[in-house]
Write a protein that binds this DNA or RNA. Structure first.
Lengths: 197, 197
DNA sequence: GTCTATAGATTGATAGAC
DNA sequence: GTCTATCAATCTATAGAC
């Protein structure tokens, strides 16, 4: 019996975390009430308090367990070709049109939690670590060919893609794929100073 | 008497809008209650409903009246020099460390309202128009020297600065000014294809 | 137009049964 | 660990006096 109890407990925890991700992406941190979060996971609010203490505890746990399942897929797709254009196109495509499993609103969850982290000390270090991980992972994927710092380029790539996606989400016609790719290409070769301009 | 009544009305409206901007930046859209918004403007909730109908009306009005007072200052500072490095440094500086009048949290207001716009049809077109204005204004300031589309570069500049500021806000050491400037410089000259790589 | 007072719904969190 | 029931606080919005 111990076994099945533990299983149910673990399942509940996972259901709560997944439901939290989805519902918060849809309604926002403040818009997703404890009851609604529990409902979405087919549990009641009591389960949330038993597992995480309070709503903030759930959010912090969500941040801790929140890994990009996408990372590996992106890397594989990236390394499938040697052509720089195709590689950057893969990066961009995976960023703007989220992978099969994730909801279309996953980017909203990123912004939701970033905003939350800006106002909550406990959350900030976790989200900061998440961005640090993202930079490192991307830097490793890019494995900077030349003298440029790979992490520097990774930070710029991430920044550009986030900012472009923000604009595109408001107006899909505002940002073309060509613009995005031209931007990534330019950033990839920022080592050379503005010599022949 | 009509005169002073109108004056008070106009003043109240302005106070409500300004207080809304500040309080929402601090607590978020959902975190700033109607009563709290009214309090911050030294009025009561009744004033908000009389002026804007409901909370959403206040937010929409805030979006409509929301102009960057900074635009002109940035442009003046930009054109004060011919040196590209100094120009981009001025752009970046004005973006990350907001001007005298604005609160340090003004960027949070941007994200707060962007997120709101992603979930609210009435708000989305307004925020989209705001970003379009920003692109146009920046494009005009940059007055693209060469064949590159000025609006394209403007979109990339804005995207990069937003994304870098997000990362820097979580961890000030993650993004150096040098990285930001190198990124802007690279984007400014994206016309040339990757020929001599 | 602005206030006070209040209705009605919803919130985060707790208590106690199982 | 999970549920039901519930409290106190807070929320948006309305009604009516001035």
């Amino acid at each position: 019996m111990r076994r099945s109890q533990d299983q149910r407990k673990a399942e509940t925890r996972q259901r709560l975390l997944q439901a939290a991700g989805e519902l918060i992406a849809e309604r926002g941190v403040a818009g997703a009430s404890v009851d609604a979060l529990a409902d979405a996971a087919d549990r009641t609010s009591g389960a949330i308090y038993a597992h995480f203490g309070d709503k903030e505890g759930l959010l912090v746990a969500l941040l801790d367990e929140w890994k990009d399942a996408t990372g590996d897929a992106v890397r594989a797709e990236y390394e499938a070709t040697d052509d720089e254009g195709a590689r950057f196109a893969a990066l961009w495509r995976n960023f703007v049109s989220p992978p099969p499993n994730a909801s279309d609103a996953w980017v909203l969850l990123e912004h939701e939690l970033w905003l939350y982290a800006c106002r909550n000390e406990r959350a900030r270090s976790r989200v900061a670590a998440r961005y640090d991980d993202a930079r490192r992972a991307l830097a490793q994927t890019l494995h900077a060919s030349d003298g440029t710092s790979a992490e520097e380029v990774a930070a710029l790539f991430i920044a550009l893609m986030i900012g472009l996606e923000m604009q595109r989400r408001l107006d899909p016609d505002a940002i073309t794929d060509e613009t995005a790719l031209a931007g990534l290409r330019a950033l990839a070769h920022l080592r050379q100073p503005a010599e022949n301009v």
